[in-house]
Each structure stands twice: as C-alpha cells, then as structure tokens.
C-alpha cells in the first residue's frame, strides 16, 4: 500500500503545467478561490447584458441592431459556460444566483455605470470588451480545466465584440462634429472605469498572490492594465480623439506608457454597492429571476409528466 501525498501531487501537476480537473484532489482554498472568481466572472457576463440591452430597441440602424443582439446573446452564453464551470467545483446554480441576488457575490464594477448615449455602447465594445479579452486570453491557460475550456470558447467568440465596438466608434469619430463629441465624451467617461476592471493595484490586491502561485492567473492586475494602455493609446490616436488622461506619456525606459491611476476610492464605492447603477442592475436581475419562476415551475411539471408517460408506456 502506498500513501499518496495529495498536496504534492497537486503541486507537481501545477509545476508541470498540467490541468487540474474536477475530480482531482485540490486544496480547499484553491477550490474556494476558483468558485469565487468563476462565479463572479459568470455574474459579470449576465449583468453585462443589461447596459447594452438598454440600447437594442434604439440602435441607430438595422445592422447595428442585429450586431448588438448577437453580442448580448453571446454574453448570455458566456455566463452559462462559466456557471457550469463553477458548478463542476461543487456549488449549485441556485447557490450562485442567490449569492448574486443578495449581494454576497460581486460582479465587474464596470457594469454599474450607465450607457447614456449610443457612443457608450461603442465604447463598451471597444474598451470594456478589449480589457476583458486581455484578461481572458491569459485565463485560457488557467490551471483549472473546465475554466480554461470555457475561456477558450469565450475568446473565440469575443473578438467580434471588440471589433464591432471599434467600428461603431470609428463611425462616430469620423462623423459630424456632434457625433465626434459624443465619442469623446464616451471615451472620457469609460476610460478610468475600464482601467479599474483589472482590479486593485498589485500592492493592495488581496486575492492575487495565491492566484498567481496556483496558476489561476498568470499575470498580475498591474501587468495586464499596463498592456491594455500600451495597446489602446494608438487606437485612440487613430480616431483623432483626445487622450482621456493628460498624464499618458511614452516612457522609453519601461517600454510602455505612463498613465494616471484610476480613483481607487471610487472603485471601492462602486464595488460595495454605491455606483450609479448598482441598485438598478440588481433589481433587474432579481425581478427577472422572480418573474421567471412560473416558467421554471411549468417546465418542471412538464418534464415530470413526460417521465411518467414514459414509465406508463
């Protein structure tokens, strides 16, 4: 009889870049960390449908309307992939939904900002999905198999999201002076909230340390944020818009741009429920769940009836 050292097996798998699968032994904190991260990621996809859904009926053309519908449908799908990935860790869908509806679980702070104009929808596709992709490309190589597989699928679908946003932004930026102004205003309002999406600075990030050690994340919040800024500045310049931060400046020494830190007090406030749209978003989710109750009850009854018919036959 040999005795296994489970922790050693787990560590050696990580060291060899092997994936951890649902039935593998894993430290309790690894499981907890993943449940928190994946469920919050799922909630973000679902809540993220709301700010854009707000514009489906008012999209400026039939083309932009079908594109937006397809994008919002994708976000719903991404939420579903992620929920089932989290469920493989032993938490039920109901528990996760309950945590969202009672504010025990968080979702990305960005979706607590309003979409005031059509340019905001463009800015979300370009900037918010751009930032999300940066994070998600990294997560394709995360150490937990089901999460990694969900991310690979999501990344495949996501690149159209950013491109359609940038295309819509281009139309506004090269349109009438009024449209260009609208584009600038959306950029100015969404810039810092987008930078916040990568999470608090490394020196203050409570969850980063283990996440990197366990290869759940492979890059830190600050590294991803820096890469996003480096990539986005030239996209802003192409649009002929003004940089939303006067401190953005190329720094040869670090081979990247310097830029201002987002307002982390605002970030904490929004995360803790006091952003411009927190209440509205949560109410929309809770009422959608409540209003769907009769559908779930009917579907359950129908499934039971089918089962009984099969047994009787």
């Amino acid at each position: 009889m040999s005795t296994y050292n489970f922790e050693e097996i787990f560590e050696s798998k990580l060291a060899k870049n092997e994936m951890i699968e649902p039935k593998d032994w894993m430290p309790e904190n690894y499981r907890k960390h993943l449940i928190r991260q994946i469920s919050q990621h799922a909630h973000s996809e679902i809540v993220g449908m709301l700010p854009e859904g707000n514009w489906i009926t008012r999209a400026p053309s039939l083309r932009s309307k079908i594109v937006l519908l397809a994008k919002v449908q994708d976000e719903g799908g991404h939420g579903l992939y992620l929920y089932t990935a989290a469920e493989s860790l032993g938490i039920s869908r109901d528990e996760m939904l309950d945590a969202l509806h009672t504010s025990k679980a968080k979702y990305s702070s960005i979706f607590n900002y309003p979409t005031l104009t059509w340019a905001d929808v463009a800015a979300i596709g370009w900037l918010v999905d751009g930032a999300a992709i940066m994070n998600q490309v990294m997560l394709q190589r995360t150490s937990y198999g089901p999460y990694s597989r969900a991310m690979i699928r999501i990344c495949k679908e996501e690149s159209f999201h950013q491109r359609q946003g940038y295309e819509a932004m281009t139309r506004l930026a090269f349109g009438t002076p009024k449209q260009k102004e609208m584009a600038q205003d959306a950029l100015n309002r969404f810039w810092f909230p987008t930078l916040m999406m990568f999470g608090p600075p490394d020196k203050e990030s409570p969850n980063s340390d283990n996440a990197v050690k366990w290869r759940i994340k492979r890059e830190t919040n600050d590294e991803l944020r820096q890469r996003f800024v480096n990539q986005t500045v030239s996209q802003i310049e192409y649009l002929g818009l003004q940089l939303p931060d006067a401190k953005i400046k190329w720094n040869e020494a670090k081979n990247g741009y310097d830029f201002s830190e987002p307002n982390w007090v605002e970030f904490k406030n929004v995360i803790n429920g006091n952003g411009p749209c927190n209440k509205e978003r949560l109410n929309a989710r809770v009422s959608a769940h409540k209003n769907g109750e009769w559908v779930r009850a009917a579907a359950t009854a129908y499934a039971k009836k089918l089962e009984n018919e099969t047994i009787a036959a």
Binding site: Y81, R153, A299
Partner: peptide
C-alpha cells in the same frame, strides 16, 4: 464533448 447546460427535458 464541448460543455454542459441545464434543461428540464430532452
């Protein structure tokens, strides 16, 4: 195999 989902019947 490509993933999973919830549903009430076949």
């Amino acid at each position: 195999h490509c993933g999973n989902l919830h549903a009430f019947d076949k």
